[in-house]
Structure formats: C-alpha cells, structure tokens
Design a protein around this nucleic acid. Structure first.
Length: 558
DNA sequence: TCTGATCGCGCG
DNA sequence: AAAGCGCGCGATCAGA
C-alpha cells in the first residue's frame, strides 16, 4: 500500500492519495488543510502502514515529527531519482528521458517552520502536485522493473528512503550536548570567553610568543602568506605552512605556532560561537544530507556534524537514566572489498575480529600498521610512499581483491562508469573530460594522463566506499526497524522512554538509550549488522563485526 | 564591498 | 610518516 503526499492547487492544502501496490487508486484522493495533515497521516499510518511517497522527506517529515507523528517507511522520489538517473543497471529503460526534475529543496513546509528555530531556511515555495508525484512514481517503478537487477535496486532505494527518515529523526532529536561541560573545556584551553571579536587570552599569548620568536611584531598568524614570509626570514624553509610539515623544523617559533593553530581551530570551529548557533535546549541539532556525497555517503549542512573533533566529544553526554550505545563497523571498507572481490584469502584473514592483524599475520611479519597502510593504499590508489612499496606484496597475497580495485581504476581511466553492489553508479564523465582525453594526447600528454589517473582513483575508491555506504545504510535501516519494534510509537506516545538514533558517521552509529534497554539495543545493533551483510551479499563466509561500547560520554567510546 | 578560489584541518 | 579516496567549515586572498 502506498500513500501519496503532494501539494493541492491551493498552496496551504495537501492532497493525500492511497494506492494499491499495483499503483491503482485504493480510495478517492483527499484534500487536507496543512494544519490538519499530521492527524490524517497519523490515522492512515495506524490503519495501513503505507509507504509514504513524497517529493522529498525533508520537505514533509520535519513537520510531522514536530507534531509527534512518525512513519514506518517512505519512498523519497528525489533521492531515488538521483540514483536512477545514473544507475547503469537501469540505463536501458528510458527513465532518463521521462524523469521529471525534482523541485529545489526549499526546506520544510510552513507548518513545520512555525515550530522551527530562527535558523531555518526561507519559507517553502513550490512542490509537486499530485499528478506529477504519481507520474514520477510510476516512471521510477518502471525503471526498477526493467533494470538488470531489480531486486538490488529495490533494496537500495528502500534503504536510501529509510535513511531519509532516520536523518530527519536524528536532526529532530539532536545529540544530547552538555553546554556547561563544553564551556568549561573552552575556558580551560582558551581562557575566558573574549568580548566582541577579540582573541581568547591563551591564543593572544601564543601569538605574542610567536611574533617574538620570529621577530615579526605585526605578524598575523592566521595569514598563510604573512606567516610564510616571516618563517623564511627566520630561516625556516618550509614549502607550506601545514602543521605536520612545520613540525619537522627545529626552531623556537614552531612550538607556539603549532599550539596556536590547535587553539585557533577549536576557537573558530567549535568555540562559543558554535555553541551559540547550534546547541539549544541541551541538544546539538545538525542537518544531515542523505546521499549528499557521490558515493552515497551522507553529508551534513551546518555545524559540522560529521567532523566533531575528538577534543570536544566529552560534551556529548547521555541524559540521566540513559546511556550512549556507540557502535562502529570494524574495518568496513576492506571487508567490503573482500566481499565484492570474493577473495577467500582476505576473508580468511578477517576470520577474527581484526582484519588488519590477520593480514599482517599472513604476510607482513605481524606488523599491523603495515598491513593497514598497504590495504588502504590499494583502496585509495596510492602509488608512492610506504603503501606504494607494499603494493606488490599485497597483490601476491590477494590477487582477487587487488585485481578488483585495479579493474575499477582502469574502467575509470577509460571514462567508463562503475557501480556499487546494489547499483549506484558514478556520474558520467563530462564532455570536456572526454575531449581532453581525445585531443590533448599530442601537445599536452601529461595533463590528460593525470586526469585519467585521477578519475581512476575516484572510480577505484567509489566501488568500495559506495558499497560500504550501502552496507551502513542497510544497517541503519534495519536498526531503525528493530528499535521501532522494541518500543512501538503507540508505547512511546505515553511517555515511555525510547531508544533514539542520535548520530551516524559513515560506519558508526550512536543510540541514546534508556538504561533498562541497553542490553536489548546492543543485541539489536549486532543483529542489524548481520542482516545488512545478508541483504547485500547473501550468505558469505565473511563477517562484518561491530564494536559496541556503552558509555556516558561520547569521548569514552573506542 | 562582494564573490569565488585556496589553504589548512577536522572527520571517516 | 604525511601519500592515495570522500566530505564541511572558517579565514584569507585575488579579482571584479
């Protein structure tokens, strides 16, 4: 059963249409005023558990969540369209010609905005009407049905849509964040909060020490050019002002400079201004952008949710009566590679929990760090340095796995598209790229070769990173489904504490969990990872182990 | 004075 | 130790 949500001709009303699984109308379309939508959705959800079809989840779902309405599943037309437009497995069906451009993302509906914070985007404008929504849904169904791998594509689109729900719910819940602890940390490291636009005391002191050490009284340490000139005058012949490079030099200026850099980063990115802007009522609310990365990974917008430095994770604390369950998939990308390539030797190395240790034992004299560098080098396309030197050894040990990424790289260099396990494909190369390959071989061969190798590294990594993103997406979807079964919406409505997914970072999830449910949720995290593995790869002789820690504070995970 | 590119660095 | 993949963000810099 599907339920279409679309805009009625009157901008303040919504059209709701129930559809049978074959797409035929199961009831007459209803028109509902915007402020009555949540109640209608609630009733239909309880009665039919439909798959909600909408132009994009971030347009509709925040408003429903604000009205305390959650849904089981959806079909996010915008997300599915962006996958189908590139998907090689669906290329033959003519979907590309029929696809209707999705209207720009102009934020949640006005009804949701009334309850939203001051920082939301400007008022929503256009959205699809019912006929358009219906037409696009039918086009997408046809594209899936006529694809070479309908089951995989169906799974990918369902999981991606589930993630759209997860992302909206995570943004709504927010990460529990102790502002007082964060402020204490800032005070300890930087000194008291500076008034106006001044620098914190400890940064000021370090800047002074730096100016003295370089004999440059007017130096602005934030200016790379300024800094470079001063360093050269002091006899420090650095090629850039990157910290790791400067650390090579012995000079009295280096220590205060590196210390200044560290504090400056904290102050500008996660200082008092960040707290002010992103933390409200004890929660850090960020916006997640599902499928925001070409590979299918999530991105985020505002607040840098996917780059929370380890330094400040102590401020993320579970609320009284709760714990954080932090789970991360161990060596996800290398394991994905072993599964994709069906490399039984590498799978054997991953029999125990630590794949890198297994590989090290098989051929790197037990040096785990060496095995890790070699394997990541193969996935990233490294040619130089330590990992480049280790490649021949890795190739001897795992010809199938290395051959798999090499094939993906060669395809990319030729300008071909490559695809993930479930069928997400790289965008086609631009005409300029192809023209560059064709024409410039005579006069500027190096440019063309460099562009080809660069794309090779991209496609090499895409198949692994993208399939890992699919595994994580399925994991998240399975996790959400099981958590909902553990504490149904009907139970949560009366105030029963419920475990909430509050954070997701590529291969890591965090659940804010009532104490009494910690064991049950930990089990669910593991079950969900096994389910994800089976969904992607079927029954394979390779596990995807998950490290689970139960902590009060995010800083204590791992 | 505004805008887009670049640098440097945080995360996986 | 510092290269190979994917990002977001803030400050500076270059050019209009």
């Amino acid at each position: 059963m599907y339920a279409l949500l679309a805009h009625a001709p009157d901008g303040s009303a919504v059209s709701v249409q129930l559809l049978a699984p074959d797409g035929s109308p199961a009831a007459p379309a209803k028109t509902v005023a915007l402020n009555g939508l949540a109640d209608v959705v609630r009733v239909l959800e309880e009665r039919h558990r439909p798959r909600w079809v909408w132009d994009r989840a971030p347009h509709w779902y925040p408003g429903l969540l604000a009205a305390n309405v959650r849904v089981e599943r959806c079909h996010d037309l915008a997300l599915c369209q962006s996958i189908l437009l590139n998907a090689e497995s669906a290329a033959a069906g003519g979907y590309r010609q029929r696809a209707i451009p999705v209207p720009a993302d102009d934020g949640p509906l006005p009804a949701a905005q009334a309850q939203a914070s001051l920082f939301e985007r400007p008022p929503a404008g256009s959205g699809w009407d019912q006929a358009t929504t219906m037409t696009e849904l039918m086009s997408q169904m046809a594209a899936i049905a006529s694809s070479t791998h309908p089951a995989r594509l169906t799974l990918l689109l369902a999981a991606e849509s589930a993630c759209a729900l997860v992302a909206a719910e995570m943004q709504y819940e927010g990460i529990p964040w102790r502002e007082d602890l964060h402020r204490r940390l800032l005070n300890d490291l930087l000194g008291p909060e500076p008034a106006g636009h001044g620098r914190p005391a400890k940064m000021d002191a370090l800047a002074g020490a730096l100016r003295t050490a370089l004999d440059a009284p007017a130096l602005n340490p934030d200016s790379p050019q300024d800094l470079m000139r001063a360093l050269h005058r002091a006899g420090i012949e650095a090629k850039s002002t990157r910290s790791w490079e400067l650390a090579e030099f012995k000079h009295p200026a280096i220590e205060p400079l590196l210390a200044y850099r560290k504090l400056s980063r904290l102050f500008t990115t996660n200082g008092w201004a960040w707290l002010e802007q992103w933390v409200h009522d004890g929660r850090f609310h960020s916006e997640y952008v599902v499928g925001g990365v070409v590979s299918g990974r999530w991105a985020s917008r505002g607040g840098g949710a996917l780059q929370i430095p380890k330094q400040i994770r102590g401020a993320a604390c579970a609320e009284p009566g709760h714990k954080f369950i932090v789970a991360d998939a161990a060596q996800l990308e290398p394991r994905v590679l072993a599964a994709l390539a069906q490399d039984s030797a590498m799978a054997a190395a991953g029999r125990d929990k630590d794949l890198y240790a297994g590989i090290a034992a098989q051929g790197f004299g037990g040096e785990r760090a060496m095995a890790k560098v070699a394997l990541l080098g193969a996935i990233y396309g490294s040619t130089s340095g330590e990992s480049g030197r280790l490649m021949p050894q890795l190739t001897r040990m795992y010809p199938r796995a290395v051959g798999f990424v090499e094939d993906a790289a060669r395809a990319g260099e030729r300008g071909d598209t490559v695809s993930t396990r479930l069928g997400r494909s790289t965008p086609p190369v631009s005409p300029e790229w192809r023209e560059g390959q064709r024409s410039s071989s005579a006069e500027e061969p190096r440019r063309a070769e460099s562009a080809a190798r660069s794309r090779g590294r991209f496609t090499r990594n895409f198949v692994v990173q993208g399939t890992a993103a699919e595994w994580a997406c399925c994991w998240l979807a399975e996790l959400r489904r099981r958590l909902r079964a553990l504490v149904p919406d009907s139970g949560a409505a009366d105030g029963t504490p419920r475990p909430e997914l509050v954070f997701f970072l590529h291969d890591e999830v965090m659940v804010h969990c009532p104490d009494a449910l910690v064991d049950a949720v930990s089990d669910i995290v593991h079950e969900s990872s096994r389910a994800a593995t089976r969904l992607l790869f079927g029954d394979i002789p390779l596990e995807f182990p998950v490290n689970v820690t139960v902590v009060e504070s995010y800083a204590d995970a791992k």
